[in-house]
């Protein structure tokens, strides 16, 4: 097990609530095994306490973020979220009995679309993952995968037929992933879909999906429902991976070329010592 007191994850910004749900009543949550109390003070600012200490907090992307230790960096930036005309869609939390790192890795994966998101994000026989590009950016603090292309029967709530969709994936923090994908109503722009993962323990996480879209047509309930449908299709997969912890030993699982993003993500975790939720020693 990784010690939450020393893992650098404690110096990351970690999501704990939707901003809209934060009120004057104090609420309890758990981050890396530590009980945390959150509330909104009468001056409107968010507050968080743990073990008698006041925690650093910040609010952005419709969520409250806390830091158990000393923030290593400011909260990551999603410049697209500042574009005028974007519509924000927080989707609520879904608890998953899996490592927070496995939840991120699954979000970076496209090869499972035909089998897990059948007839929505993928379908047989169009199962091929063509070559894409993976690199580290921002002084090696971010993993990026670009030119990821996949045939999708119904790429989004507003899609009306199959399209070849182009994705970019970005990991700006160990428990955050942002994807950019073709935006059917605005060909020049990209939809932003993210998951913010709250590590409750090494094998339990709360996932907060969030989107920033150009879509003036769809009802909010349809957009939330679409994202919840996709994420909950993944949930039974995530709860049935063995071991629950993400293996960082390259010999423990067998990656292929389609898994380049996962390989880069695991290397990045190792390089930065983010081992909370990872399997350190092969069983």
């Amino acid at each position: 097990m990784t010690d939450p007191k020393t893992d650098p994850m404690k110096d990351q910004w970690l999501p704990v609530s939707m901003s809209a749900d934060l009120g004057p009543a104090r609420r309890d949550t758990v981050v890396m095994g530590v009980p945390v109390t959150i509330w909104r003070a009468s001056d409107g600012t968010a507050r968080a306490e743990a073990e008698g200490r006041t925690l650093a907090v910040t609010e952005d992307y419709d969520h409250l973020w806390i830091c158990l230790g000393t923030p290593a960096l400011p909260l990551f930036d999603i410049p697209e979220a500042r574009q005028p005309g974007r519509r924000f869609v927080p989707c609520g939390r879904v608890r998953v009995a899996c490592s927070p790192l496995r939840a991120i890795e699954n979000f970076l994966d496209i090869a499972h679309f035909p089998f897990v998101h059948t007839d929505i994000l993928g379908a047989e026989p169009q199962t091929e993952v063509t070559r894409y590009k993976v690199d580290l950016r921002e002084n090696d603090t971010e993993v990026w995968a670009t030119k990821v292309e996949f045939y999708q029967p119904q790429a989004s709530k507003s899609a009306t037929g199959g399209v070849l969709t182009e994705y970019s994936y970005r990991v700006p923090a160990p428990t955050v992933s942002v994807l950019y994908k073709t935006c059917p109503p605005r060909p020049g722009e990209r939809d932003v879909i993210a998951i913010f993962v709250q590590p409750v323990s090494e094998t339990v996480c709360d996932v907060w999906p969030w989107m920033a879209l150009f879509d003036d047509e769809s009802a909010q309930a349809d957009l939330v429902g679409f994202q919840q449908m996709i994420f909950v299709q993944d949930r039974s997969i995530l709860e049935n991976q063995v071991p629950a912890l993400l293996p960082l030993d390259p010999g423990r699982e067998i990656p292929t070329r389609a898994d380049l993003t996962s390989v880069a993500y695991r290397r990045y975790l190792k390089a930065h010592g983010f081992t909370y939720g990872a399997e350190l020693v092969p069983a």
Binding site: I237, P243, E253, I254
Partner: peptide, 27 residues
């Protein structure tokens, strides 16, 4: 063993076509 060597998914969640067992995660 109830574990796909690719990503550790339980194979008992998979599907059988003909004489092959497929993993539900990536097929």
């Amino acid at each position: 063993y109830d574990r796909c060597p690719h990503r550790g998914m339980r194979l008992s969640h998979g599907f059988v076509r003909g004489e092959m067992l497929s993993c539900i995660y990536h097929g």
